[in-house]
């Protein structure tokens, strides 16, 4: 079974798009998607960590002993998360403050660890990079979409710009905690209706 770089890349965009198809890494998905901007920012940060950790894990896969591999993965991931954390503090401080705790929590995001364990540890560097990029973009798209829907319904704005004029009554349920669960559940339902293989 030949694996091409293109197919590894595209599977993250639809067939296995996280977090809809792979129900992993839900915490940031629910926590930061009150606006589209936050969602996309979080998605990009996760994408960076995902690609870098996938490349490094894959490059070191013959050196890492199988028994302590999880600990090694975690150190690699934590290193890149620290890089993102410091970079965001320097160049995107406002976004960093809004995302708050969820940036350090990328360390324990199941998607990143899951891809390292399930994919990068068994495949070569190029394939792993493609996998990381695909999964990362898929994750960013999902977060952006969820953030967009919640922002439009919950506050009546789209990427910060007002949509419906002053007479619009925002449905604040959507930007609060319960709305996040319901909105994600219904989006998953819509995806299931169209995407059932």
């Amino acid at each position: 079974m030949a694996k091409s770089i293109a197919s590894e890349f595209t599977k993250g965009l639809w067939n296995e798009i996280p977090p809809f198809r792979l129900v992993l890494g839900l915490c940031p998905v629910l926590g930061v998607t009150t606006t589209m901007q936050n969602g996309v920012g979080m998605g990009l940060a996760t994408t960076f960590v995902l690609i870098c950790s996938n490349i490094l894990v894959s490059a070191l896969r013959n050196l890492i002993p199988g028994k302590v591999r999880i600990a090694c993965f975690i150190i690699i991931i934590a290193t890149f998360v620290t890089v993102v954390e410091l970079a965001m503090q320097a160049y995107a401080y406002q976004l960093f403050q809004q995302l708050g705790m969820f940036i350090p929590l990328i360390v324990v995001n199941c998607i990143v660890l899951g891809r390292a364990e399930a994919f990068a540890f068994k495949n070569n560097v190029m394939l792993s990079a493609a996998d990381g990029l695909g999964m990362g973009i898929g994750f960013t798209l999902s977060l952006g979409a969820l953030g967009g829907v919640r922002e439009i319904i919950g506050t009546g704005t789209f990427y910060g710009a007002s949509l419906f004029g002053p007479s619009f009554q925002p449905f604040t349920f959507m930007v609060q905690a319960p709305g996040a669960f319901v909105c994600l559940g219904l989006m998953l339902c819509i995806m299931n209706m169209f995407g059932s293989k």
């Binding site: 709305g179 669960f181 319901v182 559940g185």
Partner: peptide
């Protein structure tokens, strides 16, 4: 998962 998410919302 879908129904589980909606239930969690409630």
């Amino acid at each position: 998962t879908s129904i589980a998410l909606v239930t969690a919302g409630i």
